[in-house]
């Protein structure tokens, strides 16, 4: 069974992308963008996923888990997800509300 990573609010450490969302996170307030990176029908672990805001400005970057999963805590609005990997690069544009939004980023 996976152990949840405790996210230390005083750090900028990247949390384990595969861990369950910590119980302390209030999903009524958070805007979570999560999903997988796919190359064809294969998940891509170790891909670099960049979150860009509505103007294209870089906001955050995480590395996908062994299952190809990424997760961001953002805000409602328009975002672009850009994935870089040895299997190729790809983008996905999303408009999200509060709560959890799932998105797939395809690379080629």
């Amino acid at each position: 069974m996976a152990t949840a990573t405790v996210v230390n609010a005083a750090s900028c450490a990247a949390p384990d992308q595969a861990a369950p969302i910590p119980a302390s996170v209030d999903l009524a307030k958070e805007t979570v963008i999560t999903g997988v990176v796919l190359a064809g029908d294969q998940v891509v672990p170790g891909a670099y996923v960049r979150l860009l805001d509505a103007t294209g400005e870089f906001t955050a970057e995480v590395v996908t888990s062994a299952e190809g999963v990424f997760r961001f805590f953002a805000a409602p609005g328009d975002w672009t997800l850009r994935a870089l990997s040895r299997a190729g690069n790809g983008d996905a544009v999303v408009n999200v509300e509060r709560g959890i939004s799932e998105v797939t980023v395809k690379v080629a």
Partner: peptide
């Protein structure tokens, strides 16, 4: 990031925002 600067976010967007 611009959103942290403006006060719209408290942390980078790969972290929970409760602070």
């Amino acid at each position: 990031s611009p959103d942290e600067y403006a006060g719209r976010l408290l942390a980078p967007a790969h972290l929970p925002q409760e602070q």
